[in-house]
């Protein structure tokens, strides 16, 4: 179990045991009131545990956070590649400036400069996404701590995954896939051809 700056499970159990031990030696109304209050407290703890269970923190750590960071990395990569292609094309045009009439080449060169300036968006985008990824990693650490505190009393995402729900139309909205994760156009053509062949 990870270190918890507040308290440990054993400490809580120890406190409760002490209270129960003292109550067992007391009598009458006081004793029944204390037992009643302790039962309510136990119920509150159970409710909180069930609510946390419903949120499936294991899924957040094992599935959602890694997926989001992968997607963000893919955004950076894709914009970098696109920016590179834009600049490649600009440099080809720059190479042809000497073959253009001066009044035309001046205009084209000014336009290319604007394109290069605009391409700096990729750097800014990358830095902003890096900040987001850093925040997500911080959340990941907090979720890890939470899971460690709750111990083995929560089902892992694998156990819940075993109960598969039917796929709905909404489940099919997955957006663009990461490189290597989706199917290629060739694969799609083959799948469609198989349907046509039936």
């Amino acid at each position: 179990m990870a270190d918890n700056p507040g308290y440990h499970k054993e400490q809580v159990v120890g406190i409760i045991n002490t209270v129960i031990s003292k109550l067992s030696r007391s009598e009458g109304d006081v004793r029944s009131i204390f037992f009643s209050e302790l039962s309510k407290l136990k119920q509150v703890i159970e409710d909180a545990r069930n609510e946390i269970k419903a949120v499936r923190p294991g899924d957040i750590k094992d599935k959602h956070l890694p997926m989001v960071t992968d997607e963000l990395d893919a955004v950076v990569l894709a914009t970098e590649e696109a920016t590179g292609t834009i600049m490649d094309s600009c440099e080809v045009v720059q190479g042809e400036l000497k073959n253009m009439p001066p009044e035309v080449s001046a205009k084209v060169e000014a336009a290319i400069t604007k394109v290069f300036e605009a391409c700096s968006f990729q750097d800014i985008t990358g830095q902003r996404i890096t900040k987001v990824v850093r925040t997500l990693k911080h959340i990941d650490e907090k979720v890890t701590t939470l899971l460690a505190v709750l111990g083995a009393r929560l089902p892992d995402s694998g156990a819940l995954e075993a109960v598969k729900k039917p796929i709905t139309d909404a489940d099919l909205l997955n957006g663009p896939q990461l490189p290597g994760k989706g199917v290629t156009q060739d694969d799609i053509d083959k799948i469609l051809a198989e349907f046509d062949g039936k």
């Binding site: 600049m87 440099e91 720059q94 290069f116 391409c119 700096s120």
Partner: peptide, 13 residues
Amino acid sequence: DDYKTMLRIIKNL
């Protein structure tokens, strides 16, 4: 700069 894109932009400018 650690972004190759940025190096390329500044170099071109």
